[in-house]
Design a protein around this nucleic acid. Structure first.
Length: 557
RNA sequence: GCGCCCGUAGCUCAGCGGACAGAGCAGCUGCCUUCUAAGCAGCGGGUCGCAGGUUCGAGUCCUGCCGGGCGCGCCA
């Protein structure tokens, strides 16, 4: 990362200042400090706050410290053209032309890997997301979880982690039982037989559709078999149908999971029972009112939690503990659960359950995303899964397309509730920020096609004089492109995928401004070569950013 | 009542303890015989919910309050 190079350069200057007696020894070891682009372009390309950070420890005014560091900072150098002391003690740096050139060449050399780093060092991370109950089609809230989870997974891969994507299938318990009873009733109805539709049943048309599918494939045959057997067979058919639908929808959304983990298997192979026994041995459970309770309050939860109900059936929580133990057992060092806000109350108990069994809470992380409020021309769209009146993720994809949906879901902070206005997103117009970014990419591709048509060869990294790129528009574009590694690092380590969308927009803006000010294909062959390399670097930066968000980098629009 | 999250321009939202708080939309004004006008340039628009505190420095961190959302089940 460029900021790391600059940070190291400034830290070395501070060390030299200490060595020469210009700064007291208390300035070393050099503490962490920020190097970032200032808001005001008059403050240079990057600003460092080391002098301000050191003021307290050194006991001297920041400007005095900054002046001492500045005296030992070589400039002009290959990295920094010039540096100046400003404001309360900022060191404002202007990058050397050779620095921009070197990084632009790096963009070409690394191509699809530009922006990637290796802070993860191959550590294994499991990202679990979506994990919606297979009792109905995915709704738009799952779309947000999917987009956020997928982008976080891609960010972590770009940071050098080995990432696995997992969907936890709740194929056990009340909800899938209700699904099976609903399908069973519709099946019997379809055969013209009397059937009472269950009170807690799912009303949606998809239930009728699954019932029809069973009629097509099995006729009346299943109606003849014994009740328990029939229920079980219908349940597995219904489950398979729902999961196929969910999987297809997610694939259309650009998301593919490595693992679909079945909750049922945890019960069947005794993993739930073993965890209960272990908790009992450690005296972390007690019986009350016929139920088995976990002493969650010992681990920071605000009340104890039921593991086994009075009727002997384990709760969802009881299976969640062995599920997460299984993740660790499979070799993952760090777990990220991307959950909807409706599960926020379950975080403390799961954290407590795993802590009780010796797992380090720091290795289990929750990324909670808030609700999506659907709107149509500003008016709220009512949704209810039970009555079947809701907008599915598939509906959304059909209406606004995958690119707009992915970009919109990632664009806002996961922690803030978001409004998704269907009518607005359906208007395929400039209102939509995703087009602004895609359009920049398409324009670059158009220039490259035009260059090819005119027989202008793509410049080679060696022999192209990038020092010709001196106008403000060219420098801003170059600087934005080479920021990508820092952006990916911040977005990934802080789990703030929305930074990618903000950056994509800024990079596109820098290109559009450049485009209106600077002509790429000119009679000047050396300038043309330099600008071709610049826009080709911008193309790679935009494409790599959009790849992380899951949005297509359109070559024509 | 308790817990978590959110309060930033008319609307939807960005904003990494740093310098004069930004974008898009909406409104108004200009710019296409030249690589895509899905673009660019400009004009307006703010007590960053309120009050304290920490800090050289707070929209950002801490505390309290106000407003909103979600959760607080032997549902998932």
């Amino acid at each position: 990362m460029l900021t790391q190079e600059l940070r190291a350069e400034i830290a070395r200057a501070a060390e030299r200042a200490v060595a020469s007696g210009d700064l007291p020894a208390s300035a070393t070891p050099v503490p962490p400090f920020d190097v970032e682009p200032p808001r005001d372009p008059r403050h240079g390309d990057y600003a460092a706050n080391l002098a301000l950070v050191l003021a307290r420890a050194v006991g001297r005014p920041p400007r005095e410290i900054g002046a001492a560091i500045l005296r030992h900072l070589p400039a002009p150098s290959e990295l920094v053209d010039h540096a100046e002391l400003a404001g309360q003690g900022f060191l404002n740096l202007t990058l050397a032309p050779s620095c921009l050139s070197r990084w632009l060449r790096r963009v070409h050399a690394e191509d699809r890997r530009f922006g990637h780093t290796d802070v993860g060092r191959g550590r294994r991370v499991l990202v679990e997301y979506v994990s919606a109950n297979p009792s109905g089609p995915l709704h738009v809230g799952s779309g947000r979880g999917g987009a956020v989870g997928e982008t976080v997974a891609r960010l972590l891969e770009a940071l050098g982690y080995r990432v696995s994507r997992e969907y936890y299938v709740n194929d056990y318990g009340n909800q899938v039982d209700a699904l099976a009873r609903s399908v069973e009733a519709r099946y019997l109805e379809a055969l013209g037989r009397p059937a009472a539709f269950p009170e807690d049943g799912y009303q949606g048309a998809y239930v009728v559709e699954i019932a029809r599918q069973i009629v097509r494939e099995h006729g009346a045959q299943l109606a003849e078999v014994d009740g328990a057997e029939r229920f079980s067979r219908i349940q597995s058919i219904a489950l398979a149908a729902m999961l196929a639908d969910i999987r297809n929808t997610l694939e259309a959304f650009g998301i593919t999971f490595d693992t679909w983990f079945s909750e049922r298997t945890l019960h069947e192979r005794g993993a739930v029972r073993r965890v209960l026994e272990e908790l009992r041995e450690r005296d972390l459970v007690y019986e009350q009112d016929g139920a088995l309770w976990f002493r969650a309050t010992r681990f920071g939860d605000d009340k104890d939690r039921v593991l086994v109900r009075g009727d002997g059936r384990p709760t969802y929580f009881a299976a969640d503990i062995p599920y997460h133990l299984d993740k660790y057992a499979r070799g993952f060092e760090h777990l990220i659960d991307v959950w909807g806000v409706d599960h926020i109350g379950d975080v403390a108990r799961l954290r407590g359950g795993l802590q009780a069994l010796g797992k380090d809470p720091a290795t289990l992380e929750f990324l909670i995303h808030q609700h999506v409020r659907l709107r149509n021309e500003g008016e709220a769209v009512r949704m209810s899964k039970r009555t079947g009146e809701f907008v599915t993720l598939r509906d959304l994809l059909g209406a606004v397309g995958r690119d707009a949906a992915r970009f919109f879901f990632v664009m806002t902070s996961p922690g803030a509730p978001m409004d998704f206005d269907l009518a607005l997103a359906q208007r395929r117009s400039a209102d939509n920020p995703v087009y602004y970014v895609q359009y920049a990419h398409a324009r670059i591709c158009s220039i490259l096609r035009e260059a090819e048509r005119a027989g202008i060869p793509m410049p080679q990294a060696e022999g192209t004089d990038l020092a010709l790129l001196t106008s403000p528009e060219e420098r801003v574009l170059a600087k934005r492109v080479i920021m990508l590694p820092d952006i990916v690092h911040a977005a990934g380590t802080r789990r703030e995928p929305q930074r990618l969308c903000a950056y994509a927009r800024e990079l596109a803006e820098a290109f559009h401004v450049f485009y209106t000010q600077c002509r790429v294909l000119t009679d000047d062959a050396t300038l043309t070569a330099a600008r071709l390399m610049l826009v080709d670097a911008a193309r790679r930066g935009l494409r790599n950013t959009l790849d992380l968000v899951g949005v297509a980098a359109a070559e024509r629009m």
